[in-house]
Design a binder for these strands. Structure first.
Lengths: 200, 200
DNA sequence: AGAGTAACCGAACGATCGGTCGGGACAAGG
DNA sequence: CCTTGTCCCGACCGATCGTTCGGTTACTCT
């Protein structure tokens, strides 16, 4: 009795269509005409549901950011030895990134042309900083290598994780979130070289 | 007697300005008006040097692709044990990426809206494939871990390397190409964990 | 000095941009 | 029945898009 009035668009369902087109064509490369064709309604009808193009972008990146910041509030990310918390966050980042793939994809591609985009970039930097502090704490414990700058390592690991949006596609038979998260964690913490070879 | 006629724009000098603006605003987010302001000449004057906006994009990604494919022709990338050739290619990729930073940055951001962009994506896939084969050969020799899929590892390592364009800025006092290349190679091959700890 | 030309400009082109407007179709509630 | 409000539409807005055009500088060469 609460929902189910008609089978038309809501701001949320319209958003999922819009985000998909944004990711295919790029935000700037997507016109409202493109969106209307993809949604199957007229251009002006879109404005019945949302205020405009930029609101769609804001809703999308907000959803992605909520998912990422949510990780830091989880218990395993807050308590325990920093290196363990770090590994947990890395795994969860992969899982959230895959669970909210189109939204995180869009977030990772904003350039900063509008106020919304600049706000998204700022929040992204804040998240990166929080994880960097975790890595720094793990380094202080002597649990991760210190011969490479913490700042640099953070960026490289983030780069590896974020690059997942460039190729992961949830087409049925593919690997699931857990498998990818395991691979990323193993590669990031253990390295490319055959396990047991040490460094020689 | 060959060069040095006037101190005006050439297609190359104009390209360097254009690529910088493309990277700041995104290709689709950049208008010819933006380019003319950045270059300090009128919009119509740009067309005296190049055929149009898309030619600037084509020249830029061509330069990036030439740099990357050039690596595969170098001797250290062609002869020797695959794992050694792989590490050489990884290091050189970082160096080329930094040496041609704005051009590679643009290459890594094309989405496929035009023929030029689709051609760039195709050539990128070709390069990725060539490196993936090298990794596969190293795995066959038992020199790199085989518990993670070769295809996945390739993508993650590429992701780590390519992410450099998102943060590296050549502002004088920063790290140089060699330092970054060393860090990437060490992290990719040795992993995050403190050297000597093994996997425990 | 005069010819030739590379470099540049303002004005304008048709097309498309994001967004607005008045109104029509249709279901729910009386 | 008629009203109310949701959902949607075609037509249109001023602005901006990439590009073209005719014409004016300003430099080089003879």
């Amino acid at each position: 009795m609460t929902t189910a009035k008609r089978d038309t668009y809501t701001p949320e369902t319209l958003l999922s269509v819009a985000v998909q087109v944004f990711n295919e064509r790029g935000y700037d490369g997507t016109s409202m005409e493109h969106l209307s064709r993809a949604a199957g309604i007229s251009k002006s009808s879109i404005y019945h549901h949302v205020a405009g193009k930029e609101e769609l972008l804001r809703r999308a990146v907000s959803r992605a950011l909520d998912g990422l910041f949510g990780i830091l509030d989880e218990e395993d990310a807050r308590v325990g030895r920093p290196v363990g918390r770090l590994e947990y966050v890395v795994r969860r980042m992969v899982e959230v990134l895959i669970a909210e793939l189109p939204y995180v994809t869009l977030l990772l591609r904003v350039r900063g042309n509008t106020d919304t985009e600049r706000w998204a970039l700022e929040r992204r930097r804040e998240f990166d900083h929080r994880v960097a502090e975790l890595l720094k704490a793990a380094a202080a414990d002597g649990d991760v290598r210190e011969d490479i700058e913490v700042r640099l390592v953070t960026r490289l690991v983030f780069g590896m994780i974020n690059s997942i949006v460039e190729w992961y596609r949830p087409d049925g038979r593919g690997m699931d979130e857990r498998e990818v998260a395991d691979a990323v964690a193993q590669l990031a913490f253990g390295g490319l070289r055959r396990a047991g070879d040490g460094r020689g």
